[in-house]
Simulated assay, not measured.
Amino acid sequence: MTALPEADCFLHPDAVAGVVTGDDWRRPELQARYGGHWVPALLARIRAQDSSDGGS
């Protein structure tokens, strides 16, 4: 499996851990914070994950 990219984040140091990763879309607090505002491919994965586990 290929490692997901990471990047330092300097936009809102008080709101994030300082590193943005390719797995951040899986974090429930970020899913709640951004609601339906994800790229369509990730939004489909989030919705599929929610329906398979009974919702978040």
Rank of each mutant, 00 (worst) to 15 (best):
L11E: 10
W38N: 01
S52K: 10
G18N: 03
W25D: 01
G35Q: 13
Q49E: 03
L30T: 08
G18W: 05
F10M: 08
M1K: 15
D50Q: 15
G35M: 05
L43T: 00
D53I: 14
L42T: 05
L4M: 11
R47E: 11
S51V: 07
P5L: 03
W38S: 00
P28A: 08
A44K: 07
A7E: 11
L30P: 06
G54N: 02
W38P: 00
H37T: 07
E6V: 09
C9W: 07
P13H: 03
V19S: 04
M1P: 09
P5H: 08
L4W: 10
A41E: 15
D8P: 12
Y34Q: 07
G22S: 09
P40S: 08
L4Q: 12
D24A: 09
S52R: 14
V20Q: 06
Q49R: 08
G35A: 15
C9I: 11
S56Y: 05
V39P: 05
G55W: 02
T2V: 13
T2N: 13
G22I: 05
Y34C: 06
D53M: 14
R27H: 10
R47D: 08
A17R: 11
D24V: 02
L30F: 15
D8G: 13
V39F: 12
G54T: 00
D23Y: 14
A44E: 12
T21E: 07
D24P: 02
R27C: 05
V39Q: 13
L42A: 04
G55K: 03
W38C: 00
H37G: 08
P40Y: 03
M1R: 14
L4C: 10
S52P: 01
D53Y: 07
A15C: 07
V39S: 12
S52F: 06
A7F: 11
R33H: 14
Q49V: 01
I46M: 06
T2S: 13
L30W: 14
A17N: 13
S56C: 09
E6Y: 08
A3V: 14
R47T: 10
A3D: 14
G18C: 06
D8V: 15
L43I: 00
G55H: 04
Q49F: 01
R33M: 12
E29K: 04
A7G: 08
P13G: 02
A17Y: 02
D50C: 10
Y34P: 02
L4G: 11
R27F: 05
R33Q: 13
G54Y: 00
S52A: 15
A7C: 10
D24W: 04
V19I: 15
C9V: 12
S52T: 11
R45S: 00
V20I: 09
Q31H: 02
A48R: 08
W25M: 01
A48D: 09
G18S: 06
A48S: 10
R45A: 01
A48I: 04
A32D: 14
E6T: 15
H12E: 06
G18Y: 05
I46C: 06
V19P: 07
P28Q: 03
P40L: 03
R33D: 03
D8N: 11
T21H: 09
M1H: 12
T21Y: 06
W25V: 00
R33L: 14
D24K: 02
H12A: 11
